[in-house]
C-alpha cells in the first residue's frame, strides 16, 4: 500500500470572493456570467513552475535599497514583512516564489499609467521577491506604503497595502492577494476589501504589528502568513509501492 499525493482539494468558493461585486465597479464588466465548470485537477494543475533560489539577487527582497542610488535609501517608515507559507493541511510550502509590489510612502506607484499627484521617490521602485526557505518562511524589507485615491466612488481611498503573488508547487495553487496593516481605518471602507465575505476573511489579509521581530532603532515588523490550497493524501491499494 502506498501513500500518494492526490488531487487538490476544491477551492472554497463560498469563502473566496465572487467575480461580480458591483461596489468594485470594474468587476461589473470583467466578471463571467456563466457558472465556472468544475473539473478534477489533472497533471497540468498538480504541477507548476518552480523557481530556484538562484534567480533571486541579493537585493531582491530589500525594497528600501533595490532601486536606490548607491548610499541612498527609500523615504518612509522602515518595515520588515515576514511570514510562513503553508497549505490547508498546515504543511509548510518550501520553495514558493513570492513577488510583491506596492506604492511608495506617499501612495504613488512607479507605473507609466499612474497619474496621482503624489510624488515619486527617486530611490523607490516598489517591487521585490523572495523564495520560501525549507520551513516555508519568507521575509522582505520595505517602507510602509501610503493610502491612495482611486476613481471608483468619488472619494474612495485604498488602505495601505502590499500586493502579493504566490506560486506553490502546483498551478492550481496560484494566488494573488493583498496584505493590509493592522489598525488601518480605511480597511472597512474599501470596496476591494469589501469583496471579501466575512470579517474573518478581512482579518486573514490584515498583518499584525510584530514587535518581537522588530529591529530596535531600525525597522518595525509585520507578520503575514499565507495559506495555499492543500492536496488529498490518497492510499492506492491497487497499485504497487512506488507508483
Amino acid at each position: 500500500m502506498s501513500l500518494k499525493q492526490g488531487g487538490y482539494i476544491p477551492r472554497d468558493r463560498g469563502w473566496q470572493p465572487d467575480a461580480f461585486t458591483p461596489p468594485y465597479k470594474t468587476s461589473v464588466k470583467r466578471s463571467p456570467q456563466a457558472a465556472l465548470l468544475s473539473m478534477p485537477t489533472t497533471l497540468g494543475e498538480e504541477t507548476g513552475p518552480v523557481f530556484g533560489h538562484d534567480i533571486i539577487g541579493a537585493m531582491d527582497n530589500d525594497l528600501i535599497h533595490n532601486f536606490a542610488a548607491d548610499g541612498q535609501s527609500a523615504i518612509g517608515p522602515r518595515i520588515i514583512v515576514h511570514g510562513v507559507v503553508k497549505d490547508e493541511s498546515g504543511r509548510p510550502v518550501p520553495g514558493a516564489l513570492i513577488e510583491v509590489w506596492q506604492a511608495n510612502a506617499g501612495g504613488r506607484y512607479r507605473h507609466k499609467k499612474e497619474g496621482y499627484l503624489g510624488a515619486l521617490d527617486p530611490n523607490f521602485g516598489g517591487c521585490g521577491r523572495a523564495i520560501t526557505d525549507e520551513t516555508g518562511h519568507y521575509e522582505f524589507r520595505s517602507i510602509q506604503p501610503g493610502p491612495y485615491p482611486w476613481p471608483n466612488g468619488l472619494n474612495d481611498w485604498r488602505p495601505a497595502h502590499i500586493h502579493f503573488s504566490i506560486f506553490g508547487l502546483g498551478f492550481a495553487q496560484r494566488l494573488i492577494t493583498q496584505m493590509y496593516f493592522e489598525g488601518d481605518p480605511h480597511i472597512p471602507l474599501c470596496p476591494i476589501v469589501g469583496v471579501l465575505k466575512s470579517q474573518e476573511a478581512f482579518d486573514a489579509l490584515t498583518a499584525p504589528l510584530d514587535m518581537n521581530r522588530t529591529v530596535p532603532m531600525d525597522a518595525r515588523a509585520f507578520k503575514f502568513d499565507i495559506t495555499l490550497r492543500g492536496r488529498r493524501q490518497t492510499y492506492f491499494e491497487n497499485r504497487p509501492e512506488g507508483l
Partner: peptide
Amino acid sequence: NLRETPSQTAGPY
C-alpha cells in the same frame, strides 16, 4: 485545517 488565503484583484499595476 487552515483556510486558503483570500484572493484579491491584481489591480492595474
